[in-house]
Simulated scan of single mutants.
Amino acid sequence: MDAERLIYPLMKHVVLGPAMRAAFRPQVSGLANLPDGPVILAANHLAFCDSFVLPLVVPRQVFFLGKHEYFTRPGPAGRAMAAFFRGVGAIAVDRSGGHAAQAALDAAARVLERGEVFALHPEGTRSPDGRLYRGHTGVGRLAERTGAPVVPVALAGTDRVQPPGRRVPRPGRIGVRVGAPLEIAGRDVREFTDEVMRAIHAMSGQEYVDEYAPRRENRS
């Protein structure tokens, strides 16, 4: 068992888990929909803390992509940050340059090929206004490549506990709804991605926008 696997249960059950449960009082439904074996969790994206909420409520270890910068900062503080992100299941991926998308897909595929759980946000970035935006086809391409089922997840309330610009979440109730698994079964990745987003929309109740969410650097 490597260091990350030793750190993960400590972070989830001793360090972060109790504090987050007390602060967020998560209301969770649909965990019985989570199958054994490789699973892709596809969730809406309302706040930075979304990536930490999923590992908190899902009984299996959840992996997700993290910015390369989180793992490479110098000094004791940088090493502590890297240990923290590895401990909660983050995988370092350099998303700069022309091969960024392929590097992310390869990293996610390796997790699924081990029979584990990988989480992503098909919108690609946090919603700027609480609405649900069109999904990027990475979720469909990952399902096509690995054969793993996609489980749609709807998060609620994370944008209230951590609105834009707030570094530390404030106490408040959040909700997590886990939907039934979806299989790509040879379908077109765009069609399948749209089906995943419809499932998230049905559970979240968000207004749906049939266009990609603007990246933060392009927002006014």
Score class of each variant (00 low, 15 high):
D159K: 15
A42P: 05
A107Y: 07
D50V: 03
L46P: 00
V28G: 03
R173W: 13
G179M: 05
R177E: 15
A156C: 04
G157R: 03
R170P: 01
G130N: 09
L182F: 02
A108K: 01
T137V: 14
K12Y: 01
T137P: 02
A100Y: 05
R190G: 11
V117R: 03
A22Q: 08
R166Y: 12
R145E: 08
D129G: 10
V139M: 10
A109M: 11
A77N: 04
P163R: 08
S220L: 14
E113Q: 14
F48C: 08
G98S: 13
E195C: 07
G130F: 01
P169F: 04
E123S: 05
V168C: 02
R25N: 11
R160K: 14
G172H: 06
G66V: 12
E4Q: 09
L155P: 00
L41I: 11
A104C: 11
S127Y: 09
E123Y: 02
A83V: 08
F84V: 02
L105I: 12
A213M: 04
T193G: 09
P214H: 08
R131M: 12
L46E: 03
A42F: 03
P181R: 05
R86Y: 07
E4V: 11
P26S: 05
D194L: 11
A185W: 12
V176Q: 04
F192Y: 07
L120F: 06
R73I: 00
A148G: 06
A3Q: 04
V139D: 09
S127H: 11
Q206L: 12
V153C: 08
A83P: 00
L56G: 02
F52E: 08
S127T: 14
Q102S: 12
F71T: 00
E144Q: 15
M20L: 15
Q162Y: 09
V139S: 11
G135T: 07
E116H: 11
R126K: 06
V153H: 02
R160T: 07
P214F: 09
A32T: 15
L46I: 12
V139H: 10
E69L: 07
P122A: 06
H45A: 10
R198H: 10
P181W: 08
L31M: 10
N218P: 06
R134T: 04
K12W: 04
N218E: 14
G30C: 11
A90T: 05
P55G: 04
A109Y: 00
I91Y: 01
P26H: 10
R21C: 11
A82K: 01
Y8M: 11
F64V: 10
F84T: 01
F85N: 05
V14Q: 01
V62K: 01
R215S: 13
V39C: 00
P122C: 04
H121W: 05
L31F: 00
V15L: 13
R134I: 00
T72K: 03
R134A: 06
L132I: 13
A77L: 15
